[in-house]
Measured scan of single mutants.
Amino acid sequence: GSLMYASIFGNVSAIIQRLYSGTARYHTQMLRVREFIRFHQIPNPLRQRLEEYFQHAWSYTNGIDMNAVLKGFPECLQADICLHLNRSLLQHCKPFRGATKGCLRALAMKFKTTHAPPGDTLVHAGDLLTALYFISRGSIEILRGDVVVAILGKNDIFGEPLNLYARPGKSNGDVRALTYCDLHKIHRDDLLEVLDMYPEFSDHFWSSLEITFNLRDTNMIPGSPGSTELEGGFSRQRKRKLSFRRRTDKDTEQPGEVSALGPGRAGAGPSSRGRPGGPWGESPSSGPSSPESSEDEGPGRSSSPLRLVPFSSPRPPGEPPGGEPLMEDCEKSSDTCNPLSGAFSGVSNIFSFWGDSRGRQYQELPRCPAPTPSLLNIPLSSPGRRPRGDVESRLDALQRQLNRLETRLSADMATVLQLLQRQMTLVPPAYSAVTTPGPGPTSTSPLLPVSPLPTLTLDSLSQVSQFMACEELPPGAPELPQEGPTRRLSLPGQLGALTSQPLHRHGSDPGS
Rank of each mutant, 00 (worst) to 15 (best):
S348N: 04
A414I: 05
S289G: 13
S227H: 13
R360N: 12
K185Q: 13
M468H: 12
I211F: 04
A411Y: 05
V258E: 13
G256Y: 09
E160F: 02
A268D: 08
P310K: 08
S207A: 10
T444M: 14
V450N: 13
G169D: 01
S202K: 14
K154F: 03
S410H: 10
A430P: 08
S235K: 12
G173N: 11
G355D: 10
H204F: 07
I350L: 12
Q237Y: 09
L405E: 01
S207E: 04
V147G: 08
R246G: 13
L480A: 09
Q466F: 03
K170G: 01
G298D: 15
L132E: 01
I140G: 01
P255N: 12
P449S: 12
G493L: 12
T336V: 09
S171E: 01
I151Y: 04
L495T: 11
S443F: 08
D509S: 11
S293G: 07
A397M: 03
L178M: 12
N155K: 07
L178F: 05
E328S: 09
S139L: 06
L498W: 06
P161G: 03
S445F: 10
G153E: 07
A343E: 10
S286Q: 15
D190M: 01
V416C: 15
G233C: 12
E392Y: 01
R360K: 03
I142L: 01
P478I: 06
E210K: 09
M468S: 10
T499P: 08
T442M: 06
R358H: 06
H504Q: 10
L376A: 03
P478M: 11
S451H: 10
D296T: 05
G323T: 15
P485S: 11
N172T: 08
A370W: 09
S460D: 11
F344L: 09
Q237N: 10
H204M: 04
M197H: 12
K250Q: 10
S445L: 06
S224I: 09
A260E: 14
E331N: 09
Q363K: 05
T425M: 11
K241M: 10
P161C: 07
A430Q: 14
T372R: 09
R144K: 13
S352M: 07
L495F: 01
I151S: 04
P199S: 04
R367V: 09
R188E: 03
L473P: 05
A433C: 12
S352W: 03
S352P: 10
V147D: 13
L461N: 05
A266H: 09
S271T: 10
Q418W: 03
V347F: 04
L128W: 06
T499G: 07
V258G: 11
G346D: 11
F353I: 12
L183M: 08
G264R: 12
P475L: 11
L365V: 12
V175K: 01
Q363A: 14
L480I: 08
A150K: 08
S451R: 10
S171M: 02
R367N: 11
Q399P: 03
D196M: 06
L448A: 09
N219S: 11
D509F: 05
P437G: 10
F201H: 11
P437I: 11
P263H: 13
G496C: 05
G153P: 02
P255Q: 10
M220V: 12
Y431V: 12
S374W: 05
